[in-house]
Each structure stands twice: as C-alpha cells, then as structure tokens.
Simulated assay, not measured.
Amino acid sequence: MSTLLSIEKRNSVLSSMAVLLEQERANLKTINQQDITNYSGDDLAMEKRLLVDDAKIDGMILSLQQLASQEDPVGQVRFNFTHENGLKISNKTAAFGTILIIYESRPDVTVEAGGIAFKSGNKILLKGGKESLLSNQKIVSLWHQALTDNAVSNSWVEYLNYDRTETQAFLEKPTQKVDLIVPRGGENLINFVKKHATCPVIVSGRGNNFVYVNAEADLDQALAIIINGKTSNISVCNALDKVLIDVNIPDWEVFAKKVVTELQQRNVTILGDSTISKTTNVPEIESDLIWFEEFLDYKIVIGTTNSDQDAIDKINTYCGGHSASIITKNDAVAQQFMDNVDTAAVYQNASTRFTDGGQFGLGGELAISTDKLHQRGPIGLQHLVTNKWYIYGDGQIR
C-alpha cells in the first residue's frame, strides 16, 4: 500500500483531472464513438450506458469538482474515550487500501467511482467491460496525466485489461493486495464476482422495487409516482418493477384501470395477479416467481393486497432489498410500513427513482449497496472508509 496522500494532493489530482476532461472532450467523444461502432450487442440499456456525450462529460467534470470541494473522509473522529488509567483512545476513519471496481459499459464510472475511491485515500484498480475499452483507456491515460502533473505515482490508478478467465484468476489469487471489491452491473457480473472473490465484496446494483398504494393514498400522486418510477429511465436499479394496490381503496378498480391505461399509453407491458387480470384484462402472471424479477425494461407487474401487513410481508418476501415506497396520507401507517419493510431506502409519497447518491446529498455514489455490511444504500465518499483505533499512552501496562 502506498503512503496516504495528503488531502491537498488528492484534491489537486481531482481538479487536474476535471481540467483534462474539458481539454480532451472532443477526443474522448471521438474515441467513444469507436466503442459504440464496435458494440454489436442488442442490449438497449447497455448501449445507453456506453455512450459518452457532452452531458455525460459535464457530469464527470461536475463530480470531480464536487469531490475536490468535499471534506476529507479519512481521519474523521468517530469515538473518543479516556480510560481511568489515563489512556486516550479514539476511533478514526481510515482508507481501505486498494479497491477493485468491476463494471460494465459505463465509461463515466472510470471517472466517478475512481474519483470517490481516490479521494477517500485508496489505490484504485479499474476493470471495465470490453465494450468500453477504448473510452476507458483514454480516461485512464488522463488519470495518469493528472497524477504525473501533481508528482504522484501512476500506480494509484491502474486499469486491468483482463478477459473473463484472467479476471477470475485475479479474483481467486490476486497478484497484489486487494482490500475491497465493488462490482457494478447486472446480476451475472455480481454473482461471478461473489463466487470467485477472496476478499470482501460490496453487492450493488440490483433493484426490483415496489410501490404500495394504501387505502388512504392521494390517487393522483400515486399515479404520477408509478409512471415516473417505471418510465423515466428503465435501465437503472432504482426503477419501479412492482405495484401493490390496496383493495380497500374506494373504487379501487377504477384506479387500477387508470394505471393500466396510462402505462399502456407509454408502451409498458403489464402483467397482473388474478384479481388485476380479471379487473383490467391484462395477462395474468404464470408464476409467483416473477415477483422476484428485476426487469430493466418497459415491463411491470401489478398485484392487489387487502392489508398493510400483507403488503409489507409481500415486499419483504420478493423485493431486492433496494427501495420501496408507500403512497398514503396517513403518516402513522406510513411510519409503520417504513419501519418494517426491509429495504435500503423506504419512501412515503415519492418515487423510488430518488435512491441515488447525488439526490441524497452525498455528491455522487460509488454504488448502491443492498448488503447490510458495511454500508447500505448509496455509498458516498464518507462511507468508502474503514476505521482504526488510536491509543495514546504514557507507559500504561495491563
């Protein structure tokens, strides 16, 4: 592990990187077009994430500027204690050491996740997907220039141009010390990393989010939240996949039909449980297993429930542990729901699309964790640290 860089050095590298991205904007877009031309897949969500346009570059630059202005996450005192024998004991945040980020198709991760890991005092290993190789190599060359310009070793940011076999070998027997792995991508990628990794992995990126429309919901709000959650961006993990409608809503059938009509107008494929299918004529689900699925597509499942507890139980059985929202004017009912639903983010009267580090005031995110250790939900700069105990004595023995 390299010696911890001063916060001034770290900020200076991030600021240099922001300037270089602006200078190399045209070149980066040209190189990215080559990646897009080479991409032969038919995964729309993947292609959308692969594109680097002006808006994406603006986002990368902004994230670096914000990171450079944020407080140092390392060395924050979390606990202080003075022992009766005079020992001064404190617990402070500390860098992990080396973080490996494995991701698919998103060159912006090379900047944003790399920046968060670097700002929090870590060496970064980047393993991007083959579909974005040229874009990633260009961005890493800019990282190296930013490091060199600040008299910092290039070894702080390293790109691993490995195929699947080489990646598996590295996960099982790393050729250098790795303290934490963050996979960002689909379930296949996450399962692959979990299966082969020999060090801690933060699992992120799986959604399957629920909205529960309670008997005391504002139905106009509910409709707008469902439409936004499902259709504003299908390719993200905070998109909506499941809706539960309380049959205690007065005229719930009218509301259900309205939801179906509005979604169909936006080309969403709708499946329903037997009650919804009979009421609205949408196809009935073939198996309850579909409740476990994340779609990342214009597809949704709508079901009915007859009590708050039933809704809570259903969500806890099937959801991905990411986000769940209750639509209700009854704050006590909402609180009960929010305290008992087992997801990283719980909402009252709002879209699950807000589960995001930038939206939550973290200034960006490394990942959205559905694990409970060591941080849950959006992982920002201040969470990408471990901790360390400092004990100051004067000859004390036990």
Score class of each variant (00 low, 15 high):
Ile270Tyr: 07
Leu366Pro: 01
Tyr392Met: 14
Lys88Thr: 15
Val211His: 09
Gly205Glu: 04
Val211Asp: 04
Trp291His: 05
Asp251Trp: 07
Val236Pro: 01
Met1Thr: 13
Pro378Trp: 00
Ile102Ala: 06
Gln264Val: 10
Ser90Ile: 01
Glu47Tyr: 05
Asp356Ile: 05
Ala334Trp: 01
Ala324Asn: 12
Pro250Leu: 09
Thr110Ala: 14
Leu263Ser: 00
Asp313Met: 11
Ile276Arg: 05
Gln34Asn: 08
Asn349Leu: 13
Thr304Trp: 08
Ser132Glu: 10
Arg398Cys: 06
Ala332Tyr: 03
Asn91Val: 12
Asp72Trp: 10
Gln33Cys: 02
Ile99Phe: 09
Arg25Ile: 09
Pro200His: 14
Val385Asp: 10
Asn32Glu: 12
Asn238Asp: 04
Ile225Trp: 11
Glu166Tyr: 02
Ala94Met: 07
Glu286Tyr: 11
Lys257Trp: 08
Leu134His: 11
Leu14Gly: 11
Gly320Phe: 01
Glu284Tyr: 01
Lys123Leu: 08
Gln359Lys: 00
Phe81Arg: 13
Pro378Lys: 04
Ile89Trp: 03
Ser120Ile: 04
Arg78Pro: 05
Asn209Glu: 08
Asn267Cys: 11
Tyr318Cys: 03
Ile36Pro: 02
Asp342His: 12
Asn80Glu: 13
Ala256Cys: 07
Val152Gly: 05
Gly320Met: 02
Asp43Lys: 13
Pro73Arg: 11
Asn209Trp: 08
Val52Asp: 06
Ala113Gln: 04
Leu44Ala: 10
Ile379Leu: 05
Asn38Glu: 11
Thr305Glu: 02
Lys56Trp: 03
Ile285Glu: 07
Glu84Cys: 12
Asp356Arg: 08
Asp218Phe: 11
Ala117Asn: 12
Asp163Val: 09
Gly272Cys: 04
Leu20Ser: 09
Leu44Gly: 02
Gln168Gly: 12
Arg353Ile: 03
Leu20Asn: 12
Ala113Gly: 03
Asp251Ile: 02
Asp313Ser: 14
Leu4Gly: 06
Gln65Met: 13
Gly75Cys: 01
Asn161Thr: 15
Thr37Tyr: 05
Asn208Thr: 05
Asp218Leu: 09
Thr269Ile: 13
Ala215Met: 13
Glu365His: 02
Val74Glu: 01
Thr275Gln: 12
Thr280Pro: 04
Ser12Ala: 15
